[in-house]
């Protein structure tokens, strides 16, 4: 059965660490990084990348349009 796998790329410098994508992610992929970007924000990153199915929920709620989403169909 074909399984969907995804990945997101967060623009670290643009992210303001608002946490909305983390909450919106249905598979708990995202978290806020312990590190901060050059504005001092804990930017979002894929903490559990293996869970990502590329659903685009995170990019949908992102106020700063800093998330790009990729998705592939892969054999299980």
């Amino acid at each position: 059965m074909a399984k969907v796998r995804g990945a997101v790329v967060v623009d670290n410098d643009v992210c303001k660490g608002c946490n909305l994508c983390v909450v919106a992610c249905p598979t708990q992929v995202l978290a806020l990084n312990r590190n901060v970007n050059n504005k001092g924000y804990h930017y979002s990153y894929m903490e559990n990348p293996e869970n990502c199915n590329g659903c685009t929920n995170c990019s949908a709620v992102c106020p700063d349009s800093c998330i790009t989403v990729y998705r592939v169909k892969a054999e299980a």
Partner: peptide, 15 residues
Amino acid sequence: RINEIIKPENLVYAK
């Protein structure tokens, strides 16, 4: 594996 996914042909959302 992530880098394999992050390719232009797999793009589903970009600003």
